[in-house]
């Protein structure tokens, strides 16, 4: 009983997830099938992968608002055939290289130049969006390579491949944070950067590493996001940034504190999957979705602020 309470208390997302699941089961019992829920969970995989990066930078007291720009750029390059049409290796390495580059720039500016993370990542995001817009010059990009679409629809063992990738990445990150020295260093920097520095933790390098991993996750999220649509688009990105912060906070991770670990934010994204399912089946419009998302961020943050010692 006590461990259950401890587990539920570590992040708001667990309780919210159970409540939403119960609401869905009560209002739309026909949706409670594994293959239908699988489809809805597959939709939030880009968000889920991006959140892995966002939670990492938020644990070292930073933030990444450039994710939207990274995803937009990767989506544009993939769907306009920049990385070719039929070589998966090229598409993946090309996308990851972009994520790595953006992560390095963000990380260097934030960690070594000590510039404000909000301003840096906001500015990098704007530059990336500007690059995409001037490349596209008002024209929408072409079709997404068929290969990506096939991978997206692949179901090894009945589970959608994107969901498998997501769980795999979350597990890896959980091992990285829980079992490796680097994970301890992330904890130390988040808890108190000055104390961490005095204890010999390479603070700047840890923050840089978090931003680089976050850039890579944004790239991976961009790949899945692109695979999920047939034709390229210049439209998405901004709401993904907002949602990634929301899911992270809902998962019990806030600047410098990581009580929710990696699985708290994982279920935070799960909450969004259920929420989208509910709102779609109940016929709620996009503006109301925005309001609900904003309210969730605010409420989760208030609950967390009140519990802060």
């Amino acid at each position: 009983m006590r461990t259950l309470r401890h587990w539920l208390g570590s992040a708001p997302s667990y309780a919210v997830f159970l409540v939403l699941l119960a609401v869905l089961a009560a209002t739309r019992p026909e949706m409670m099938k594994l293959n239908i829920l699988g489809i809805f969970f597959r939709q939030v995989v880009p968000l889920g992968i991006v959140v892995i990066g966002q939670l990492l930078v938020m644990r070292v007291r930073s933030i990444d608002l450039s994710l939207g720009g990274v995803i937009l750029l990767i989506n544009y390059l993939l769907s306009s055939g920049f990385f070719g049409q039929d070589h998966l290796l090229w598409m993946v390495t090309g996308s990851l290289a972009i994520g790595l580059g953006v992560g390095l720039v963000n990380g260097w500016l934030v960690a070594y130049r000590r510039a404000s993370a909000v301003v840096v990542t906001l500015a990098v995001g704007i530059v990336l969006i500007g690059i995409v817009e001037s490349l596209a010059n008002g024209r929408p990009p072409g079709d997404v390579p068929d290969l990506l679409g096939e991978l997206y629809n692949w179901r090894p063992g009945g589970i959608p491949a994107p969901v498998v990738l997501w769980v795999l990445l979350v597990t890896l990150m959980s091992l990285l944070l829980g079992r490796l020295v680097w994970g301890r260093q992330v904890d130390a920097v988040g808890a108190n950067p000055e104390a961490a520095h005095l204890a010999g933790v390479p603070v700047a390098r840890t923050v840089l590493g978090a931003h680089v991993l976050c850039g890579l996750m944004a790239a991976a999220g961009g790949l899945v996001q692109t695979a999920s649509i047939a034709v390229g688009s210049l439209k998405f990105g901004p709401e993904l940034v907002l949602n990634s912060i929301a899911a992270t906070i809902l998962g019990g991770v806030i600047f410098g504190r990581g009580t929710g670990g990696v699985w708290g934010p994982f279920f935070g994204v799960g909450c969004f999957a259920l929420l989208f399912t509910l709102m779609t089946t109940l016929g709620i419009d996009a503006p109301v979705k925005l309001i609900v998302q904003g309210a969730i961020i605010g409420l989760a943050a208030v609950v967390y602020g009140l519990r802060r010692p």
Binding site: L242, I245, A246, P287, V288, K289, L290, I291, V292, Q293, G294, A295, I297, G298, A301
Partner: peptide, 10 residues
């Protein structure tokens, strides 16, 4: 940021 999302919806 949360406020901005809510206001955009409204």
């Amino acid at each position: 940021l949360a406020m901005a999302g809510i206001l955009q919806g409204v």
